[in-house]
Amino acid sequence: MNAPMTGLAMMPDLEPPRLVDEEPAVVVSGLTKRYGDFTAVDQVGFTAFPGEVIGVVGESGSGKSTLLRLLNLEEQPQAGTYTLGIKSCAGVNLFTLGRFESRSTRVRHIGIVYQNPHLGLHMHHTSGGNVAERLLVAGERSFHALRRRARAALDASEFPMDRIDVPPLTLSGGMQQRVQLAKAIALEPDLLLLDEPTTGLDVSVQALVLDTLKRLQRDRRITMVIVSHDLGVIRTLADRVLVMRRGAVVEAGLTDQVLGDPQHPYTQQLVHAKL
């Protein structure tokens, strides 16, 4: 291995050995999204194995949210492939799906929690209703099953059950994130996307939401991609981390390794700024 240590070539192959026999849950490659002649996401690729948590860090404007919107099939990229290890779409580049299949794949297999709860919730409907909507879209038509399943999802996100019929509008930021989380996991997604799920919350609330995420991850082994500029969050949750700058991944690897011993100057800057 005498390749010059520049750009992507300096990234060591860091697939953890315990996972090598498994089929990947998520494979993304060459993902590129341009708005006009501005490139928001530039040739991003990564693989995630079932139950693995991928952290994405990078300064504001580096394309993290855009990457999540692409992974949530909300937008079409200019280039790139994206597959999920699910039976109905095994080996299919999800960006080639028609409008209808794309929406049903998003509903049934992907969950998302936005930084801004207004993006993910109907603020004036009840919290339980917000979760029930997911189930309704997926075809659940029994009212009692809706109640039961919405309750179970809210319970798993450690949402207080006595507020189930209260609209998110009147709830605290932390509670709103829990409703989003319940909605995102209600259908047991194959991939959970989290965009700065704790940013903007009080520090004590942040810790509680983080606890919930950790518990979910441990109990359900949901594959996750979590975006945060808070390296503490990434350290707590992520197995591996992607460092993004101007839309491109400049460094990737095991979280401890990348954050403990950053190689790229940009990563070094990020880590030291936070320490």
């Binding site: 209703g129 029930a132 909507e133 019929d165």
Partner: peptide, 18 residues
């Protein structure tokens, strides 16, 4: 066009709840 009627069902759900 998308037969995206989740919100319509949600309205009925909310009426039942409330």
């Amino acid at each position: 066009a998308d037969a995206d009627y989740g919100l319509m069902w949600l309205k009925l759900y909310e009426q039942l709840v409330q």
